[in-house]
Amino acid sequence: MIETTSKPTGCASRPLRLGVLDLVPQAEGAAAEQAVAEAVLLARLAEQSGYGRYWAAEHHDLPGLACAAPEVLLAHIGAVTRHIRLGTGALLLPHYSPLKVAETFRLLSALLPGRVDLGIGRAPGGPAHASMALSGNFLQRVYGMEQSVQALIELLEGTYVYEGHPVQANPVPSTEPALWMLGTASKSAVYAARNGCGFVFGAFMSDEEPSEVLASYRKAFVPSRRLAEPQTLVAVSLLCADTAAEAAELAKESRNPRPEGSEQPQRKHQIHGTAEEAAAALQKWQREYGNDEFLVMNPVWNYEARRRSFELLAACVLNHNDR
């Protein structure tokens, strides 16, 4: 973890849009029921505080993470919220049939019109044996990712044909889910751009320069039926507390995800401090990357502390936007 070197200059002065990226942690000693109840509570708090999105991540057989089926969690959250957009960060497409994914998220979109984001990724989301138990030869399925993405797009556009026969993913909602691709490198960004999808850059899990990755996406973007102009989100790890000292103490117990094969947590785009310091960091990144919307992942498994963190950040950044 690092603290921003930017000096606090008060709350954000340029409009910023924020969303929540929730790994759905299961704290030590907490039951699974409490973990998912806390996710629901966080989503409702996010909506009340002005966050525009709540996204849940998918993981399998990883200790301390309680969400293996984000689409199920999102369906419940949608029933107890009113307008916040709900999405996956990410649904791991190589594990699944594109038809089943399209059907599931079209159903969600029918239940929650205009509120569903389908964020897809290609990571296994867990150890090798869990991946094999879930979907067989995962590497082989990753090799077929391009075909899976194309099939998913065609299913969402109503143009998919299998062996000469049209196949429709039902139900057909009035508003399709918004399709996003998540990645940590320029290759993923360009692939998202060429498919006319929104792109989410996982900055807190990447050592690539975000401005270069986002520039490669914008340069390669091809307008599609789903998206006329390039659209980006930047995911960061951010922990706020009432004082910098309290944030530093909480950071000692934080759990930031790390890139595959890395023995040390990635330090860039992982911030802890006061809300004013966090706002200064977000403003700096906003200027550098030309990006106005960020997904915030909180690395603390202490439920009360992470709720407080999102409250403080919203009071500083989102409430300021309304002034």
Rank of each mutant, 00 (worst) to 15 (best):
Glu249Phe: 12
Pro223Met: 01
Val80Leu: 11
Gly126Pro: 03
Arg115Trp: 05
Val234Pro: 09
Leu238His: 04
Glu47Met: 12
Asp292Phe: 08
Gly78Trp: 05
Trp285Ser: 00
Leu295Met: 15
Val101Ile: 08
His59Gly: 09
Ala251His: 11
Ala305Val: 02
Met205His: 00
Leu41Ser: 14
Leu92Ala: 08
Gly126Glu: 00
Phe138Thr: 11
Trp55Tyr: 06
Tyr289His: 14
Leu318Ile: 06
Ala43Ser: 07
Trp55Gly: 04
Gln286Leu: 04
Glu157Tyr: 04
Ser254Ile: 02
Ala251Asp: 14
Pro210Trp: 08
Leu118Asp: 00
Leu318Asn: 05
His272Phe: 14
Thr4His: 01
Gln150Phe: 08
Leu73Asp: 10
Thr9Gly: 15
Glu3Cys: 07
Ala57Pro: 12
Arg85Met: 01
Leu23Cys: 01
Val161Lys: 08
Ala279Asp: 07
Gln286Val: 01
Cys240Tyr: 04
Ser49Met: 15
Glu276Gly: 13
Glu277His: 14
Gly50Cys: 09
Asn302Ser: 15
Arg115Val: 00
Val236Cys: 04
Ile77Trp: 06
Ala178Trp: 06
Glu3Trp: 04
Ser262Lys: 10
Ser49Phe: 02
Leu227Pro: 07
Ser97Tyr: 01
His272Lys: 01
Arg122Phe: 02
Gly273Ser: 13
Pro63Arg: 09
Gln140Cys: 01
Thr243Asn: 06
Pro124Arg: 07
Ala12Gln: 01
Gln150Leu: 11
Leu155Trp: 00
Thr243Cys: 03
Ala215Val: 08
Ala46Gln: 10
Glu249Gly: 10
Leu21Gly: 00
Ser97Ala: 10
Glu33Tyr: 10
Tyr217Asn: 02
Leu152Met: 03
Ser211Asn: 09
Phe199Asn: 02
Ala247Ser: 05
Leu99Ile: 01
Glu263Asp: 12
Ala128Arg: 11
Ser186Phe: 04
Lys7Gln: 13
Leu108Cys: 03
Gln264Arg: 13
Leu18Asp: 05
Ala220Tyr: 05
Asn195Met: 11
Ala228Asn: 07
Gly87Val: 02
Ala68Asn: 06
Thr159Tyr: 03
Tyr160Thr: 05
Glu38Phe: 12
Pro230His: 10
Gly158Ala: 09
Gln266Phe: 06
Ser174Asn: 10
Val236Ala: 00
Pro124Ser: 13
Lys252Ala: 12
Arg255Tyr: 04
Ser309Trp: 02
Asp292Ser: 14
Glu146Lys: 15
Pro15Ile: 11
Glu38Gln: 15
His76Asp: 08
Tyr96Trp: 13
Val236Phe: 06
Glu277Phe: 10
Arg115Gln: 05
Glu229Val: 11
His129Val: 13
Pro63Trp: 00
Leu21Glu: 07
Leu282Thr: 03
Glu154Asp: 14
Ala281Thr: 06
Met145Cys: 04
Gln283Leu: 15
Gly50Phe: 09
